[in-house]
């Protein structure tokens, strides 16, 4: 044994994980890999990992959630959730709720309304349709722990989603539904701006009129290049931080 001058193994692991939290490789609210996975990553046994994690929990870096795992503690005021906006790419198209679910956060939806829309030149243009084509519109409030964090207006081409009016979007994820129709968003164009909440969105998000919000507009195409979605999403910046990982396509 040549490590008598080194710190004990569990302390080395502890500081490795701590560094990743401080260096924001693990972000607040993110779920840590399982103990088994960490053990094999670092080539140590599970008890060592457990001990390192226990220390980080007691030092306030991590929190344990019953039955779902260990999470990096959110610091500062309130709990903010990181939105990785690169949620859709060649490899995956998780959708926001699935993405958050991976981090142990449950999203619930409140349906404001839905409709087959015709003769909106604006929406038709966004979806590459003609104004006479039907467009399925779905308006939702999205909640985490019964608190609204987003108001979302989704518009999909009616021809691809003919039975959308019969789907229970309170329980079924929009992207799951789109996947089931073979029209999965694969390419997403996103535009993000800030604006002040107008009466309607302020009320729905339970913020004051005039508070700052993010407005994200998405335009998505499926594998075949068909435009399958145009969405306007109003997000409360007090609840979410936006995060991206942009990987350049290899040429």
């Amino acid at each position: 044994m040549n490590n008598e001058f080194k710190a004990p193994l569990y302390i080395q692991i502890e500081s490795l994980i701590e560094n990743k939290i401080v260096g924001q490789e693990y972000l607040p609210g993110e779920r840590l890999p399982g103990e088994r996975e960490l053990a094999s990553t670092y080539g140590v046994n599970r008890m060592t990992v457990k001990r390192a994690i226990n220390n980080l929990v007691s030092r306030g870096f991590l929190i344990r959630k019953q039955g779902s795992g260990t999470y990096v503690k959110s610091h500062g005021v309130g709990d903010k959730y990181y939105f990785d906006l690169a949620f859709t790419n060649e490899q995956s198209n998780a959708g926001i709720s699935e993405l958050l679910a991976k981090n142990g956060i449950k999203v619930s939806n409140q349906i404001l309304g839905r409709e087959m829309i015709v003769r909106s030149h604006f929406l038709a243009k966004k979806l590459g349709l003609s104004a006479d084509d039907e467009i399925f519109g779905l308006h939702r409030v999205r909640n985490i722990d019964n608190e609204p964090f987003a108001v979302e207006y989704n518009y999909l081409p009616g021809s691809l989603f003919a039975n959308a009016m019969e789907i229970d979007f309170q329980t079924i994820g929009l992207y799951d539904y789109m996947n089931s129709k073979g029209a999965q968003p694969r390419h997403v164009y996103q535009r993000i701006q800030t604006l002040r909440a107008m009466e309607k969105e302020a009320t729905l998000l339970q913020v004051d009129k005039g508070d700052w919000l993010y407005l994200i507009q998405y335009q998505s195409a499926d594998q075949e290049g068909r435009l399958v979605e145009y969405t306007e999403s109003f997000l409360n910046p007090e609840k979410v931080n936006l995060k991206f990982t942009v990987v350049k396509p290899s040429i």
Binding site: I192, T194, Y214, P237, L242, K243, F244, T245, V246, K248
Partner: peptide, 11 residues
Amino acid sequence: AFSEEYQQVNL
């Protein structure tokens, strides 16, 4: 030379 970009946005 660049392959990846990480970004975070806050107000």
